[in-house]
Amino acid sequence: MLRALLAASDLSSRSKPAVWRAVQLAQAQEARLGVLHVVEDDQPEARMHEEMRSAEALLEAQVGSFGKPDKCEVFSRAGDAFQIISEVARERAADVIVLGAHRRQFLRDVFVGTTIERVTRTAGRPVLMANAMTGERWKKVFIAIDMSETSAVAARKAQALGLLDGAEVSFVHAYAPITRQMMTFAGVAEDRVREEAEREFQAIRREVAEFIRGLGLGDLSYGARIVEGLGALAIVGVVEQAKPDLLVIGTRGLSGVKRLFLGSVAQELMGSLDIDILAVPPTE
């Protein structure tokens, strides 16, 4: 279960859902909640401290309007946002960091390098990107799986933190029908193509079922969706159609040149979807 949460706010409208969601989770699980604002430290000290006091007053009022939990502290720090957020999360042993969605700018909507992307990549603990404009409990949760240990860790962590409790849970797996594509390209008869495509789908279905059983999630009630397509694009399609409240994804923690060239499904999803997303690192 959740014991401690850290919500970080830059006082913008996109941070409001993060504070709201953090309050809801803290109340539901009686967890400790820290609400943090980071002030840039490249300014005169007097001005910096004034900004910190003002930010704390604004956040106190905001948290109060949502129903401040019993174990809640509002505070500010000075420094680089993503570094301070990660440091404070470690200090407070936060189980989850809650952040607002990144800035979406016309023709410059690049997720790499934003505060939330950097925190997700470096903090070493789950990051919840809150997009929902209400703090209502999640009713429908999707867990993206690719049969890797990364996605297994994400699923187990979401359950261990109590984030799946009371929700309709579905595992989502995307696959590319390679056999059908190759046979169609080779001019194989349509009936034969359909037969092989069905055989391939059933094999994937069995693999998904075995993977989910191996997660050891006890008596969790769940469904499964298998969709055709590649990576993030396929997941985006099913999410936009089914409209879950939360998507759980694993992250691989790629860094540097490797991250820039290879990209990341988690990175793409967090940069494009407008629902709450829990990104879970492979290790903590």
Rank of each mutant, 00 (worst) to 15 (best):
T251K: 00
G218R: 11
L163S: 07
F261T: 12
S151L: 00
L217E: 02
L220T: 06
A57D: 13
F75A: 10
A101G: 13
F171L: 05
E240S: 10
E45T: 14
G187Q: 08
F185D: 10
I235Y: 06
G231D: 10
F185Y: 15
V248I: 13
K243F: 08
E149C: 01
R103D: 11
D80I: 15
L59Q: 01
R225V: 06
Q159V: 07
D70N: 09
K16N: 11
V227N: 07
V236A: 13
P17Y: 01
E60L: 07
S264G: 04
F82C: 08
A186K: 04
A266F: 00
E136W: 05
K140V: 05
G271P: 11
A81E: 04
T283D: 13
V280G: 02
E240Q: 15
R21G: 04
L161T: 06
A160T: 09
F201A: 06
Q62N: 03
R53K: 13
A28F: 06
E40P: 00
D276Y: 11
V35E: 11
G67M: 04
K16P: 01
S151T: 14
R259P: 05
A28Q: 14
E228F: 10
L2N: 01
Q43Y: 09
A174T: 02
P282H: 12
R77D: 13
W20S: 14
S86G: 14
A154D: 09
R47I: 14
Q83K: 15
Q29N: 08
M52N: 04
A234D: 09
R32H: 10
K139W: 01
E60K: 05
D219Y: 00
V141Q: 09
F211L: 07
R180F: 02
I277W: 10
A167R: 00
G253A: 11
I178F: 08
T179D: 10
E207V: 04
R108Y: 12
V280H: 07
G187Y: 06
Y175F: 15
D245P: 02
E207H: 09
I204R: 14
I275W: 10
S272H: 14
R213W: 03
S13H: 06
L260S: 09
H173L: 12
D276P: 06
I249V: 15
D109L: 03
T251P: 12
A167F: 03
